[in-house]
């Protein structure tokens, strides 16, 4: 799938650590074989918000779900498209769903569009299509009257 060249970079994606670092030894059991997700995000004009590793046992490791959800709510309020990419074979999609939803709700953010991906492999086009559809649908929302 070709990505429209005029899509501006107005999106951010919450992505599990296992899709950012699929070759890490801690994810060997998942036998991950994803396409280069960071390259896809770049082509589609999306920045990355990297979620803590689902094997960490601590949603507040590193950036922490609490801080990321607060930032995600701020991006949404500022007009950015904010999405979640999750993994089907991992509990809670590897995106700490209960904690993420609770924190987003706390900051008044609407539930985020989520694409659930197959850990064994998925076509880049599926992610590109999802991301560009989200951007396009956001851009067709009419501007409020002056």
């Amino acid at each position: 799938m070709s990505v429209p060249v005029d899509v501006p970079g107005r999106g951010v994606a919450l992505v599990p650590d296992c899709l950012v670092n699929p070759a890490a030894p801690r994810y060997a059991y998942l036998e991950l074989a994803p396409p280069d997700l960071l390259a896809i995000l770049g082509r589609c004009g999306f920045g990355l918000l990297q979620l803590p590793s689902h094997v960490a046992g601590d949603p507040e490791e590193g950036q922490g779900v609490t801080g990321l959800a607060r930032d995600a709510a701020d991006y949404a309020r500022a007009g950015f498209v904010v999405v979640v990419l999750a993994v089907a074979q991992v509990p809670d999609g590897a995106v700490w769903r209960p904690a993420l939803r609770r924190e987003l709700d706390r900051w008044g953010a609407a539930p985020l569009p989520e694409l659930v991906l197959d850990a064994a492999g998925f076509p880049a086009s599926a992610v590109e299509s999802f991301l560009t559809t989200q951007l396009t649908s956001r851009q067709t929302v009419p501007a409020p009257p002056a």
């Binding site: 970079g9 999106g11 951010v12 082509r43 920045g47």
Partner: peptide, 16 residues
């Protein structure tokens, strides 16, 4: 990895 956090200092940067 997220140029959107950049306050628009580098508008050409769109992703990682």
């Amino acid at each position: 990895l997220n140029p959107a956090a950049d306050a628009g200092r580098h508008p050409a940067s769109r992703g990682p």
